[in-house]
């Protein structure tokens, strides 16, 4: 486990948690990325402003990080185009059908003890682990 990085992982996790806490206490909402993004595709536009502001914050984060630290951490993403498209479609469709992703269900939902979020998180962790097992160890990818 030479790649194990518990300290930055914990610090990053605390920041993510702080973001969801801030969003709930100030705005009264669940900071679920798929929900915030998906809401932009719905006809109701009254909440367009805060949704775009949250996403702008996400996009400016790497610029701020790079300005302060002078570099960005590695992003290793060498999947072929077809796989990226398939994965993107499944993530987009699945998170809307299942009403949440890693943030909404995994962080916020478990944080408030929601049985739906706990079940959803167990299911997507299971299918993700299974998918990695099949592609890496059965198909030898």
């Amino acid at each position: 486990m030479d790649h194990f990085t518990p300290v930055p992982a914990l610090i990053g996790g605390l920041l993510i948690g702080a973001s969801t806490a801030l969003f709930l206490v100030l705005n009264g909402r669940i900071a679920g990325i798929s929900g915030i993004l998906g809401g932009l595709l719905q006809p109701a536009r009254s909440d367009l402003g805060w949704r775009l502001a949250f996403l702008a914050g996400l996009l400016i984060a790497p610029l701020l990080y790079a300005a302060v630290s002078g570099s960005l951490p590695p992003v290793e993403l060498d999947a072929p185009t077809g796989l990226l498209v398939l994965a993107g479609l499944l993530v987009g469709f699945g998170t809307r059908l299942g009403a949440g992703c890693t943030s909404g269900h995994g962080v916020c939902g478990i944080g408030r003890g929601s049985p739906r979020s706990i079940a959803a998180t167990l299911v997507f962790m299971m299918t993700a682990i299974l998918t990695v097992f099949v592609t890496r160890h059965l198909m030898g990818g």
Binding site: A79, L83, V91, G94, R96, G98, A99, A119, T127, T131
Partner: peptide, 12 residues
């Protein structure tokens, strides 16, 4: 939905 999301997440 959660199962479909997990498959996509695990792919890339």
């Amino acid at each position: 939905g959660a199962a479909i999301f997990g498959i996509g997440w695990g792919l890339v």
